[in-house]
Amino acid sequence: MKTKITEMLGIKYPIICGGMLWLGKPELCAAISNAGGLGNVTAGNYDSGEELRAALQMTKELTDKPFGVNITLLPSFRISQETYDDYFRVCCEEKVAFIEVSGAPATRYLDQVHAAGVKIFHKVGALRHALNIEKLGYDGVFAAGIEEGGHPLNDDVTSMVLTPRISETLKIPVVTTGGIADGRGLAAALTLGAEGVMMATRFINTRECQVHENIKQEIIKRQEQDTTLICKSLNLQGRALKNELTQQVLDIEAEGKDLDRIFPLITGQRVKKAWVNGDVEGAAFMVGQSIGLIHDVISCQELLDTMVADAEKILRQNLARFQ
């Protein structure tokens, strides 16, 4: 399955792993890349550029295939501007294949990244933002629909509409993210004009993802309606699994903005512990509506092989129907 993305990044399948705080580590990243996709080391897992460098070097020991790094440029109590500078510098020095940026534009880093021969994409939720990213000189964009886990743009536009709007307008490659979990989603994204897909939630339920089994089984049990949008009143909209904690956040928001009460509930350290101890009610798990499509725990190789085989079958069948 060749697209502009597979050719640009030197990968077998047009499937990219998105940023996964506390989960996007060398073992999972290498497993995805070895399976033919593009694995992802999430920079926010590390407190310094040198810690990130150690993770990148470990990943290189586990795979000889291309892989990327997610850098989320959002206000952080833990990550300073100097640390963000170090993240980009280390990525360039280590010659990663790809950087995925979300949040604020990485304008100050673009010349540095391109000089190092690293490709850089930005995640956007609106055509107006995609146009700006293209103008700035990025190599491509992720069209992030409201279905995605994490922090979708509050325009609330679905992947089904956003992907064709952006792909019909931009000259740089577009990758769909939000609501993708299987070959049907991959086939749909390609049909809508995307050059590939990015997933994160689906990779939680792989054998290589270091998550407590309670969490994986909870995702299997849940349906597409079992996520909710929290922190809208704080202009930091986030899609998370419905549980006791997210309901507590929503209740506080209904009473009025109160960051002092909300922040301790949504801190990254809380969810970091929960991924390990399996407490399904005590943290904000930023997962997407694609949980309704997840029914098992399989290897990254099986996931990617099946996705591509199913997508190719669907595309062939649909072509045959109209011949």
Rank of each mutant, 00 (worst) to 15 (best):
I291R: 01
L234P: 09
R128M: 12
A283F: 05
V175K: 00
E302F: 00
P173M: 04
I99Q: 10
R78M: 06
A54P: 15
S290N: 10
R184Q: 11
C91L: 07
T158R: 01
E51N: 07
L28P: 15
S102G: 13
G49I: 07
E51Y: 09
Y84S: 02
L250R: 02
G183M: 05
I5A: 00
S290W: 06
L110T: 04
V174R: 00
F121C: 03
G125K: 03
A130N: 06
G183C: 08
A35C: 05
G183Q: 06
G149K: 01
T176Y: 11
K119C: 09
L21Y: 14
I230C: 04
A130C: 13
V287N: 11
T163C: 14
E244D: 13
G268R: 00
N45W: 04
R108E: 15
N70C: 10
I71Q: 02
T246E: 12
A194K: 02
K171T: 09
D86C: 02
R165T: 03
A188W: 00
E208M: 00
A144R: 00
R53S: 15
G183I: 05
L265E: 12
D155R: 02
E7Q: 10
A194W: 10
E61V: 07
E27G: 04
F285Y: 14
L127E: 06
I120V: 14
I32Q: 01
G37V: 10
D139G: 03
L259D: 15
L110K: 00
I298P: 14
R165N: 05
Q57F: 08
Y13H: 05
K95T: 07
L245W: 12
T267H: 01
E51D: 15
D310A: 08
M58F: 14
T206G: 10
Y84F: 14
S159M: 07
